[in-house]
Each structure stands twice: as C-alpha cells, then as structure tokens.
Amino acid sequence: MSRVLTMWRTTTGLPLVGASLGARTFSALFARQAPYFATIRPRFTEIGPNRAALVIPKRKRVHNHLGTVHAIALCNGLEAAMGALAEATVPADKRWIPKGMDVSYTAKATSDITCVAETDPEQWTGLPDEGADLPVRVRGTRDDGTVVIEGVIRLWVSPRRRD
C-alpha cells in the first residue's frame, strides 16, 4: 500500500480522533509535502485507488476579481486530488509525473468547490516498460452540484529507477 493511502487510512481511522479531524490532519500533512497546495487549504474527503476528492473552501484568499474561486485555485485543487489518486494507485514498480492539464471552465465557482480525480483500474495495468501517458479525469463542482471546471490531467507513468 502506498505511503499516502496508508497515511489517509491511519489518520481517518483513529478512534479517539475521528474521521473528520483525521481528514483535516491528513490534509495539512499532504499540503506540507507540496507547499503550494496549502494556498487553497484543501480538505480531503476521499482517497483510494482510482478516486480522490477534496474540498476547496470558498474564502477571500482564493477569490478572483468577481468574488468567485479563482481559476488557478481550481486547477490547484484538481492537481492535488490527482496527486493523491496517483499516489494511492500507481503500481509499486512505477512512478508518475504530471505532463499536462486541459480544462474547461463551465460555470462560476460561487461556493466551496469539491474537486474529484478519477481513473479506471485497467488504465494502470499493462503499462509498457518505456513509459506511457495516462489520462486522469478531473472535475470541480459547486455545493449545488453544478460543474464549474472539468478536464483531464495527463500523467507520464514510467518504471521506477533502480539506483
């Protein structure tokens, strides 16, 4: 099991802490690994193979000139969700790196935004030794269920170096 998935299951499964406080603890620890993620204060709600979700709280520090969640904050949330999914899913003999992101902004982000990243299990099997592109579907939704951003983050998945 990956380090990220182990940390998620440990922090959210502590009986004295509870799942909610455990998820907040995990979110803070995750953001420390890639400090730019801390700018959006992600609150992870789900992490597992092939799916991860988090919430970006709508607050002044992530607003644009319209008072909605800024487009780059949305992309930051999508990338954080994708990173958690990739860490929880990538085979032990492989590594990954983001290669590109294609997104469409489909509505104003006027509430907290739930960012979701998803793959299909078969995408991770039979990866060639020379490396391969792997698309991760991403989307962000408002509290009312309206999709405000959607797209694909492309990963480059290759064999882990043996140094």
Rank of each mutant, 00 (worst) to 15 (best):
R43H: 14
Y36V: 14
L21Y: 06
D129W: 02
T25S: 11
A81N: 03
A38M: 12
D112I: 09
E118S: 06
K94G: 04
T45C: 08
V62I: 11
N64M: 10
G83Q: 00
K94A: 13
P91Y: 01
L74R: 02
V55E: 13
V90H: 01
I97A: 15
R41A: 12
L127A: 08
V69F: 07
T119N: 04
P98I: 10
V103D: 08
T106W: 04
N50Q: 13
A109E: 03
K60H: 13
P159F: 00
V69M: 09
T68D: 15
L155V: 08
R161T: 14
A73K: 01
P121F: 05
A28C: 14
R95F: 06
S27M: 06
G18H: 07
Y36A: 13
D93F: 04
H63W: 13
P159M: 07
L66Y: 08
I153E: 05
A81H: 02
A86N: 01
D143G: 15
P135Q: 01
P91W: 03
T45D: 10
W96P: 01
P15M: 08
R160P: 05
A19M: 11
S111G: 10
G83W: 01
S158H: 09
T119R: 01
R137C: 02
G18N: 08
R162Y: 05
R160Q: 11
H65S: 14
K94R: 15
A34D: 12
S27L: 06
P159I: 01
